[in-house]
Simulated scan of single mutants.
Amino acid sequence: MTNWLSREIRHLLPTFDLHAIRTVLISFDPWRADARPTRDFLHIITDDAVAKHYPKMFVKPTIKSDLSEPVITVEFIDSSKAIFKASKLTTLDIFTKLKPLCIAKAPPP
């Protein structure tokens, strides 16, 4: 991940409320050139600081070897799902598209 992208994501991540997420399923083929943003997303979402703040969020990576497109499936606490076909998305795009969904599905305080 480039320095500017890393800074942008570090700036964006504290504004997230991931309590609305129940499950994150990440599937990708590491041999595809467009799988890097998905791997970076996996790395960020499984960071110890994130896991500490959101212990109920379950993250399951699936590593494939069939040249399939990287896909991120997010299941929210209301059982609705969002599917991101991540072959043409950057890591910042994934987080930017996920944020309004998390805000809309956030549980009441």
Rank of each mutant, 00 (worst) to 15 (best):
P109M: 08
K85N: 15
D29T: 07
T15Q: 14
I63D: 03
F16W: 01
R32K: 13
M57R: 06
T15L: 07
D93V: 00
D66I: 07
D78N: 10
K60S: 15
D29M: 03
I103H: 08
S27T: 14
F76G: 00
L67G: 06
M1F: 12
D48H: 10
T91Y: 05
H19N: 12
S65V: 08
L12N: 08
S27C: 07
I72L: 09
L89G: 01
K99G: 02
R36N: 07
L12V: 02
K88N: 14
D47I: 00
L13V: 12
T46N: 14
I77L: 11
V24Y: 00
F28D: 05
I45D: 07
H11A: 15
I72T: 08
M1V: 08
D47E: 12
T90V: 03
D34G: 06
F58S: 13
H19T: 14
S87F: 12
A49D: 10
K88L: 11
K56E: 15
F95Y: 09
V50T: 13
V50K: 02
L5P: 01
T23H: 09
S6Y: 12
F28P: 04
R7M: 14
F76N: 01
L18N: 03
E75H: 00
Y54Q: 05
R22L: 03
I44M: 04
I83P: 01
L42P: 02
T91V: 06
I77N: 07
P107G: 12
L25C: 07
K60P: 04
T96V: 04
I83Q: 11
V74D: 00
I103P: 03
T46A: 04
I72E: 03
V24R: 04
H43F: 12
C102A: 06
H53K: 11
A86T: 12
I21Y: 04
K81T: 14
A106F: 02
P55G: 07
A33G: 08
I9H: 07
S6E: 15
A82N: 06
P37H: 03
S27W: 04
I94N: 04
I45G: 02
A49R: 12
A35E: 08
F95P: 03
D34Q: 13
L5W: 05
K99Y: 04
A33K: 11
Y54V: 07
D66Y: 02
I45P: 05
T46D: 11
P108E: 15
R39Y: 07
